[in-house]
Nucleic acid binder design. Structure first.
Lengths: 341, 341
DNA sequence: GTCGCCTTTTGCAACGATGCAATACCTGGG
DNA sequence: CCCAGGTATTGCATCGTTGCAAAAGGCGAC
């Protein structure tokens, strides 16, 4: 019941352990007679290789770890799907863990007692942890970082060009004729690097358009959740001069903002145009549908996984920042907004 | 660089391997002097236990596998989050895999060459695979099934009472005074057991309310995605006598249905009331917000994981169907719909 | 008939850790 | 000064598999 081993099969078939192994692995030629006998025994005993033992011997586990802040955030769920698929194509399976954006938990995950030794490689999504700590803790396991982190070329890294993406998002709003364009999602602390890059892009777009930046229109949020998007939007609506467009740093914030707008009876996009980032499925069916900057998640996952796998196999080029493609998807929350107002 | 082993540390500290092991595991008393020396060596060499080796020796991996049809379906993502959290509380990590609802892939996952031996236990969500196959393939690994499957008590199983839940959902619509209540999501094939149970509950509610069941108001969908919900709704709207309420078998279908309704200029809930099942976060911010039957995901995950862990440790009671709690959350898609019309 | 070569089969060691049981050490009592 | 009894330390075997290299078997050539 406890699972037959090679030894059991060998005894049953009257051959050596090694021969059974040869049959199982199809690596070395085995005579037809023995092969037949061994295969019969394998079937009768329902032999399945003990992968833990095999991994110990081979020094590989065939597992990658993918660490995200929150799995119930659609962007990460959708990305995880792609990562799992990409990993499977390379013959790997994926262990998923969450940090809840907590630096402490991140340390724990990478720490001494961690299960890091069970994985051939590590895929990490936005971290609070610092570069030095990361280097300290992962010096044995290949790592690929996903999403922005201003690390200096010591790690492989896949992300979209956040500055450019944010600039394009804002320019899209400008192109609609909007002039009071707000931004929701800045994070002016050390862990908010992605957010800061998007703020830079936002400012660039306004400056290029000859618009002045009204600091009161930049609203910070500690997280990127729907509720905070709604709160931020309510705050903006309460300003003496509310915005006529909002660039949200992710789609969830945008969904929250649209919720607050609907609640306040403000029309989208006529009164306020809304754009997000992430290209999550939810935005395809929201009311109105959400204009967004959609990173190519499939591409991101593929690049990240194949870089990681190359790294594991020692065939990787030196660490570099891979820029992933993205796309502006114009939908209801900004469409047809030219004529309006 | 390749990772120090107990032997390396032992050599460095001038003690036996076994003593180092004792220090690391804190199981056996070690004199202060040696402990100090060993700890120094551990630190200098940055020793981390090789978990693969440890697992081999101990016969446990500390890993659970959680297999879902699609991770980018919010219900599963939210459930996965809870499962990961619950597993962590028991000292386990979680490997996630997807089947895409494909029976072939399910077999593959459980098949001979699978990594099943790398996990102490298996958590499976709705499957296409049959009971017999499942029994054949998992006779060594403890399994807990999540979601409905009409299996006969051979497996642990956690789910809500789908018949009752569907009945309550439908009764809610009845209580609003609706009389032409449609159902979206039936799946009249062998793999659609959850759907069939919900259809039963739907019929029960109508019958109890003295309403006749109009078969043309029951629309089947091969999957539970937003797009199919929209398509089904369009179909219903095109009927000679369209419905005045819709019970969708999950929230994504409901979101899709509301999309189609908005598109057609039909008011929700005034003209058509909508209810879903799953209680996903998306429904809290949709427009209108979505009334739903929300299974207690935390509870489901906790129950499933602790049953699985008990099973692994051999302390589990015989397999049983655990019924998880759920809750009717009344929101905008049905609220204030009494007065209307 | 013997040798040598090629193919098939096998034994042994090792991957890195832990369980078990024996050894070494230390203390106090007689 | 020796011995019992407790504690600290260690060696050996083992988990199930695979790499390596030697052993065994088969066959043609001399």
């Amino acid at each position: 019941m406890a699972g037959a081993t090679l030894r059991d099969v060998a005894r049953r078939a009257g051959v050596s352990i090694r021969t059974v192994s040869n049959v199982v692995n199809e690596s070395v030629p085995v005579s037809d007679e023995l092969r037949t006998r061994v295969e019969a025994a394998l079937k009768e005993l329902e032999y399945r290789p003990n992968l833990v033992a095999r991994n110990l011997r081979r020094g590989r586990t065939g597992m990658l770890a993918f660490v995200v802040p929150e799995l119930d955030v659609p962007y990460f769920a959708e990305l995880a799907r792609e990562v799992i698929t990409a990993a499977r194509e390379h013959g790997y399976v994926v262990m998923l863990d969450q940090t809840d954006g907590d630096a402490e938990r991140e340390r724990e995950l990478l720490g001494r007692e961690s299960r890091a030794t069970m994985f051939d490689g590590l895929l990490l999504s936005p971290l609070s942890i610092s570069e030095d700590e990361l280097r300290d803790r992962t010096n044995r396991v290949p790592v690929v970082l996903l999403g922005e982190h201003i690390f200096n070329g010591d790690f492989h890294h896949v992300a979209i060009d956040n500055v450019a993406a944010a600039r394009e998002a804002t320019e899209h709003l400008v192109s609609l004729g909007r002039r009071r364009i707000a931004a929701i999602g800045d994070q002016p602390y050390s862990t908010g690097e992605t957010a800061q890059l998007r703020t830079i892009g936002y400012r660039q777009a306004l400056e290029r358009a000859g618009l002045s930046v009204d600091e009161s229109l930049i609203v910070s949020t500690p997280h990127f959740h729907r509720r905070l998007g709604a709160e931020a939007m309510r705050h903006l609506l309460a300003l003496p001069e509310p915005p006529d467009a909002v660039f949200c740093y992710n789609d969830l914030l945008a969904i929250g903002a649209m919720y607050a707008l609907a609640d306040a009876g403000v029309r989208v996009p006529e009164d306020v145009a809304v754009i997000g980032v992430d290209g999550i499925q939810e935005g395809e069916y929201s009311s109105p549908t959400l204009t967004t900057i959609a990173p190519d998640k499939t591409q991101i996952a593929r690049t990240a996984v194949s870089t990681l796998v190359a790294s594991i196999e020692g065939t990787a080029p030196p660490p570099a920042d891979a820029k992933a493609p993205y796309q502006l998807l114009v939908r209801g929350s900004t469409r047809g907004a030219h004529e309006a107002r």
